[in-house]
Design a binder for these strands. Structure first.
Length: 572
DNA sequence: GCAAGGTC
């Protein structure tokens, strides 16, 4: 038994197709060659395989893992003709519980050639399109970028949609037109208790109509009184969180601790390599049935901070089997702590924070929900309906250990009223307000957008964000909103100009800065996996489309440069 | 000097 660490090889163009040796467009059809990235790892496989009769692959059971398995076979074949796809077996497993591993070992399957083909396709499309457009754009912008440094203008099927999200939010804010609105604000009174209620119509964008409705109510008989229509108290829950995925961890650590996705993942990786937490790159939000979660909770009893809480889960019967999410990458379980880590471990501040978060989140998802009661009062004044509600929290449940989230009883108790009761109207006036533009984009929101649109994977989302920062397409700002400071992402002039330029070229309605293209490639790859498409036809389709886009771009170079220059001019 | 996907 031996190991690899990620991909063994990489695809690239031969020397004749180097940066200044050919025109960028030639890269769509240039030959590519597979080159060993780490000879030590590759040679180790070849050597270890020399005297074997058979090979068994235990890489991650996802698409890339399947391809890495194939790479291993290729290395193993080099000095041993007995190693073929026929003599290669494949273990199917997604976590390291003993019985699961034994089951996988006793029931091997075969490498999935379709999944391997899908990865080959992805690699080729990404390499050809990325290299071609990057060289073209870099050359095009050489003279224009102020001459400070010869910046690289890279294009990638993931980095551009990521940039697109940033520019899109920025534009929505810039182009936002505030609109005035009007509403009826009403407060009723019961035994010295004042209770503001909300108009069920929300607000209206027509002042005259709001005034008419208001006047109408005022003119009605008894307009100083309102009628309670209903008072309903219902039990309500605040659910314990799902088991932890990479994307959720990055979003939460951004929200709660203002950590970037990159810093969160880096800290989690260290914690994983030191054996403190499980593998940190996972999309799975369901724990395998056989896992001894109670045992893992028990290990946390040592802690001075959350030990007594962990003990209460195990000893007082408060432990709950976590909820089951709907996502599975078939390769890794949700992120969870492996052992308790005390001060002797010498963790950095960020690592401590992330470890504590992983533990508290794990304990939280093994905890009961928070429970309370919500009371809703509905009342009528004239022709109009209003409502208000209040919350009383009865059991804090998981929130006792998940101290980052708040769910509190309402500050003011609702007055005691009954259906049919007539209450005194303390105040009934027309208020007005203005609509507000969307808020600037936070990294947490950007991660959520990428995740929802299938841009990048759990392992790469953070890298794409870092990449567009490093390329100077976007920059981060600290903005204060009231009391809180938020770190937000905004496009630079370069980033904004690039997206605007791409949009102007048009590409026959195919947008290179929107997420649809990546998503459709992902869908095509899935079809390859399911046997409904072949590597060859997906490749031809994809490359043909990019070729057309590239042709349009070369014809309209001016548009790209102009839109950058105009952005600069508009800001100076 | 390019991509995105693994990984440490």
């Amino acid at each position: 038994m031996t190991s690899v660490a990620g991909h063994i090889t990489n695809n690239d163009f031969p020397k004749e197709f180097g940066w200044n040796n050919c025109s960028p467009v030639a890269l769509f059809d240039a030959p590519t060659k597979i080159k060993v990235e780490n000879p030590l790892i590759a040679d180790n496989i070849t050597q270890e395989a020399q005297n074997c009769d058979a090979l068994m692959i235990w890489t991650d059971c996802d698409r890339e893992g399947e391809y890495i398995g194939w790479e291993v076979v290729e290395q193993a074949k080099k000095r041993n003709p007995r190693i073929t796809l026929e003599s290669t077996y494949r273990a199917r497993f997604s976590h390291l519980e003993r019985s699961h591993i034994l089951q996988a070992a006793r029931n091997p399957i075969r490498l999935d050639l379709k999944a391997i083909d899908a990865v080959k396709t992805r690699m080729e499309v990404d390499l050809r399109t990325g290299a071609c457009l990057t060289r073209f754009l870099t050359n095009l912008f050489k003279g224009v970028l102020g001459g400070e440094k010869s910046s690289m203008i890279s294009y990638g099927g993931c980095q551009f949609p990521t940039l697109g999200f940033v520019v899109d939010r920025y534009k929505r804010i810039k182009l936002f037109v505030k609109e005035p609105f009007w509403l009826i604000s009403l407060t009723f009174k019961k035994k010295q208790k004042q209770c503001p209620v909300t108009w069920e119509r929300g607000h209206l964008f027509d002042r005259l109509i709001t005034t008419c409705i208001y006047q109408n109510c005022l003119r009605m008989e008894d307009s100083e009184m309102a009628t309670i229509l209903s008072v309903a108290t219902k039990p309500t829950s605040n659910w314990a969180p799902l088991p932890l995925t990479t994307v959720e961890m990055q979003k939460d650590c951004g929200r709660f601790f203002k950590l970037t996705a990159k810093d969160t993942l880096a800290a989690a990786e260290t914690l994983y390599t030191r054996g403190f937490i499980s593998y940190p790159r996972t999309e799975t939000d369901t724990f395998p049935k056989a896992m001894d979660l109670k045992g893992l909770v028990g290990k946390q009893m040592e802690s001075a901070k959350w030990g007594s809480y962990a003990k209460s889960l195990v000893d007082d019967g408060r432990f709950r089997q976590p909820r089951q999410g709907k996502h599975s990458d078939e390769a890794h379980p949700p992120i969870h702590p492996i052992i308790f880590v005390g001060d002797s471990a010498n963790l950095t501040g960020v690592q401590k924070t992330v470890y504590e978060y992983v533990v508290r989140r794990f304990l939280a998802c093994c905890s009961p929900d928070a429970k309370g009661f919500r009371t809703t009062i509905r009342l009528q004044w004239g022709t109009e309906f209003f409502r208000t509600s209040g919350l009383v929290v009865k059991e804090n449940g998981y929130l006792e250990v998940f101290i980052y989230s708040k769910w509190k009883s309402s500050k003011n108790n609702l007055p005691e009223v009954e259906p049919g009761e007539r209450v005194k109207v303390q105040k009934a006036v027309i208020s007005s307000g203005m609509t507000e533009p969307p808020k600037k984009l936070t990294e947490t929101e950007l991660i959520a957008l990428m995740d929802a649109n299938g841009i990048g994977t759990d392992a790469t989302i953070a890298e794409h964000i870092e990449k567009i920062k490093a390329r100077n397409y976007v920059t981060t700002l600290k903005v204060s909103e009231g009391r809180s400071k938020r770190q937000v992402i905004v496009p630079t002039e370069l980033g904004y100009g690039l997206v605007e330029g791409f949009n102007r070229v048009g590409f026959n309605n195919i947008s290179l800065t929107k997420p649809f293209l990546r998503r459709s490639l992902e869908e095509e790859l899935k079809r390859i996996c399911e046997g409904q498409a072949t590597r060859q036809n997906v490749l031809v389709k994809s490359i043909t489309m990019y070729k057309e886009a590239f042709a349009l771009m070369s014809q309209q170079k001016r548009l790209l440069l102009d839109s950058y220059r105009e952005t600069i001019a508009a800001n100076s």
